[in-house]
Design a protein around this nucleic acid. Structure first.
Lengths: 342, 342
DNA sequence: GTTTATTGCGCAAACGGTTGTGTTTAATTT
DNA sequence: AAATTAAACACAACCGTTTGCGCAATAAAC
């Protein structure tokens, strides 16, 4: 039938009234008579009129769209996060422009530029692992396009961000093991360069010392997160003079490698050796051998939180020119989930 | 510094020339003198001018944006698919508007409406499980907004779609088992309502008959895909007078349930009983007991394919009014991957 | 019966670009 | 020197919608 969408002009012409009247009638403006309103609305209905959002966005200088740049959607952490983001955006009548950096700093930079020329109202981003310069973010700031950083936070000042604190969850995890009677607890941590590793270690130390136990650094192994790296760490730990009876692993992948290795040695998982991990894999619940507990980072919740902050920023009354801007630095506490295995 | 983005008008005013000259200068139009071009470009650079895409989109009636509606990003099939879609869109300079239906038909309908008012140039969609009416798609068609359906195809005529054919992969899977010496092969299929189930069954039947083996319908179980349903199916199969030596499961979840059940009975996985499944879970590679082979559906590839088709449709010369429109019905053959376990 | 509100609607500008059609100036041709 | 032409730029319309302002008609007030 119709080729192009109906416009307000056509309605005006058909009714022999002006476009402004049609516009106001459709928006229930008080200065339009009831009869006219009715006529306009009836015709609009018949013609399947829908306002051209692009035109409105252009006119108002607002796109009602937020950009989201994530490293990799196939990582379940991020796909859970985008779901949270999208749910909030949908609820608050915003639209989501999605892009993935694939952990490539250059591509990320291009994507940020693109978001700028697309005139998104705000940006939500988890930066690529390789990103080391941050001027492209400054450009957005100058245009008053707010950015909320998310999970992977760049080391720059005066930014909004939402991140999880793994220290708390780790503390709970180690504490849980201690309460269960363990006294020698190993940890397979990640490469020292990651901030997240320090958080894990801090939680470990705090839990141990809070129980007046001495912290033994040789029980915390660093690991490149590969299977061979995990096995090495396991070998060291299991040959330790104080052989651990429980192990906290950096993530579910490491946990799987470690458990497999332990099983091959004839150890019974969660009998001879207890495992606690960090939740990245939804599938872990379906598996045969799972950690007895898991530190949950709530990516869905974090996504929702970040999106809400961004949308709040977009809708807050204009910051008075003199006033200091407040920055949202939200830390979502991680939490120990016991018996994640169904 | 600057509050609003630089516009072409400001440049014009600063240089005392008209906006049209600025526009043409920036676009290297032939009718603009070299000196003027240089002056304009230099100033544009200094002011960080970037054309307002929203304005251009509005003017040209094209948004250079495609809408993507998927049921659930946390399903790895879809997160892989969106990655393929996004990669192609990025490469071809399109932008992706993302939304999830959460398998809710009503929400999906609203999302389709929203895509329409947002004036996306085209739509890519995998319909919700509960979707049973299809008028909302017709509305887009009337506006010449092409739709490419993807993976979950609605039963309507004259549409473009990309889907995988599980018949092929299943044929290969069963054939593989037959070549391995198996003669009694069980299948735990899904609910009969799904088209995908028929494809699986057909592949199974074709493989058996192609080897001149009789097809025994009682070896193909229907199942609701839950753990208890899987167990029931396993009980029936293992108590069958012709006890299967290999089992093809509907998906990786069912495989996990089935393997767990078998192990609890003391059966050795892939020794006493071989398993073949369909790849949905990337994580399966990390696990201890995995199927010996897996039917891959290439969601990433499917996503790329679907996106390419949609963008081709958008960029093809206008269909002559008289000409019959051709519909893309692309079937991506599934494929058996042997030894998926690392 | 004139003035004053009130109601109902139209006019036109604006958002930021693109593009077809003048218009001016200078160079070239004859 | 007059006529033609090409080069370089300006003018203005346009995309669809909103919105401030003005204007007419009717009703109310005195």
């Amino acid at each position: 039938m119709s080729d192009k969408p109906t416009t307000i002009k056509e309605i005006a012409k058909l009714l022999n009234i002006s476009v402004s009247t049609v516009s106001r009638a459709l928006n229930d403006h008080s200065s339009i008579g009831l009869i006219t309103k009715m006529r306009v609305k009836k015709l609009a209905q018949e013609l399947n009129y829908e306002p051209n959002q692009r035109a409105i966005q252009f006119l108002q200088g607002k796109s009602h769209t937020i950009g989201v740049i994530l490293p990799e959607l196939s990582e379940s952490f991020f796909s859970a996060a985008i779901t949270g983001i999208e749910d909030i955006a949908y609820k608050r009548n915003y639209t989501v422009l999605l892009a993935q950096s694939h952990d490539d700093a250059d591509r990320e930079k291009l994507l940020v530029e693109k978001m700028k020329t697309q005139r998104v109202d705000g940006l939500l981003i988890s930066v690529a692992k390789t990103t080391s310069t941050y001027e492209h973010f400054e450009a957005l700031k100058k245009l008053n396009i707010p950015i909320v950083f998310f999970d992977r936070i760049p080391p720059i000042k005066n930014i909004h961000f939402v991140a999880s604190n793994l220290e708390t969850g780790t503390f709970e995890a180690v504490n849980f093991l201690l309460k269960k009677g363990h006294r020698t607890i190993g940890m397979i941590n990640g490469p020292a360069t990651l901030i997240a590793c320090a958080e894990r270690k801090n939680g470990y130390v705090r839990a141990m010392t809070s129980q007046r136990l001495k912290f033994d650094p040789s029980l915390v192994m660093s690991c490149d997160l590969s299977e061979s790296g995990t096995i090495e760490a396991m070998e060291t730990l299991l040959n330790h003079k104080r052989k651990p009876t429980a192990i906290v692993t950096f993530n579910d992948y490491v946990a799987l490698f470690a458990m497999r290795y332990a099983r091959n040695l004839g150890l019974k998982i969660n009998e001879d050796l207890d495992f606690v991990s960090y939740a990245n894999l939804p599938i872990i619940n379906y598996m045969d051998h799972t950690p007895i507990a898991s530190v949950e980072q709530f990516p869905y919740k974090q996504g929702k939180k970040a999106a809400n902050i961004l949308l709040d920023l977009l809708n807050k009354p204009k910051s008075e020119s003199g006033a200091e801007q407040a920055y949202f630095n939200i830390v979502v506490e991680s939490e120990l989930i016991i018996g994640a295995d169904k």
